[in-house]
């Protein structure tokens, strides 16, 4: 029996640099991956969309602050509002926060240094479309490479997120000053996730770790289920 290939878009902004890696990784995990240009006002037929890493619009003003106004972002917001699956990686996470699709904000690392290395993550939830192939408490090795990955939420917001279990990934050790070592969060509905580490750079043991494939293949599976359900 042939299971259908889910169609997953990779949104390309000027200044993106991980778009090709994301496309390659999704294709390697048996998705039909297609690029979507930032000027598009409507998305093609998609089962999910990924906002890749990079430095959209040169990170002017604040990281993600300008990309949020790209025409395609309105379409992404509408897609998310209909329950569509959206994954933001690194700069994609920053953009989703600035767009108000995810809670909190990403700030300059507390060290002021760019961090580029493998980090150890702890999976807090395995009941999301982005982590279904992981086990709760599982440790993943995935690289980060960012200067502005220090996630922040004030006390009231943080407590709400904890209560609603919206923290999905944490760093095992402090990496960038992120509040309570948060590395990835999901929206209240559970269909939009952002994370600073780069799963698309860790899908083959040759690259040092294949743990990123657990996250991306969770997304591919969830997207496939939607194709089958005709959503």
């Amino acid at each position: 029996m042939n299971s259908p290939q889910p169609r997953i878009g990779v949104l390309r902004f000027p200044g993106a640099c991980d778009d090709r890696d994301a496309l390659w990784a999704l294709a390697a995990l048996d998705a039909e991956a297609v690029f979507v240009w930032h000027t598009e006002t409507e998305l093609p037929e998609l089962d999910a969309i990924v906002l890749p890493g990079g430095f959209s619009y040169g990170d002017y003003l604040r990281c993600g602050a300008i990309a949020r106004f790209a025409p395609a972002m309105e379409a992404v917001a509408a897609f998310a509002a209909q329950g569509g699956l959206v994954l933001g990686i690194c700069n994609g996470f920053q953009i989703l926060c600035e767009a108000g699709l995810l809670p909190g904000v990403l700030r300059r690392n507390d060290s002021l240094s760019f961090v580029c290395r493998d980090v150890l993550l702890v999976v807090e939830r395995s009941d999301t479309p982005f982590t279904s192939r992981c086990a709760e408490g599982e440790r993943l090795t995935i690289p980060v490479k960012h200067g502005e990955g220090c996630w922040f939420a004030d006390d009231a917001l943080y407590d709400e997120l904890e209560a609603r279990r919206q923290i999905v990934l944490r760093y095992k050790e402090p990496v960038n000053g992120s509040r309570n070592d948060v590395a990835g969060v999901v929206n209240e509905r559970g269909n939009v996730m952002g994370l600073m580490p780069h799963p698309e750079h860790a899908v083959d043991p040759l690259l040092g770790s294949a743990d990123g494939a657990l996250i991306l293949s969770s997304l591919v599976e969830a997207a496939r289920e939607r194709t089958l359900a005709g959503v």
């Binding site: 003003l61 602050a65 600035e98 904000v105």
Partner: peptide, 8 residues
């Protein structure tokens, strides 16, 4: 809307 992020 743009110049400041009211969270921070």
């Amino acid at each position: 809307q743009l110049l400041a992020n009211p969270l921070i």
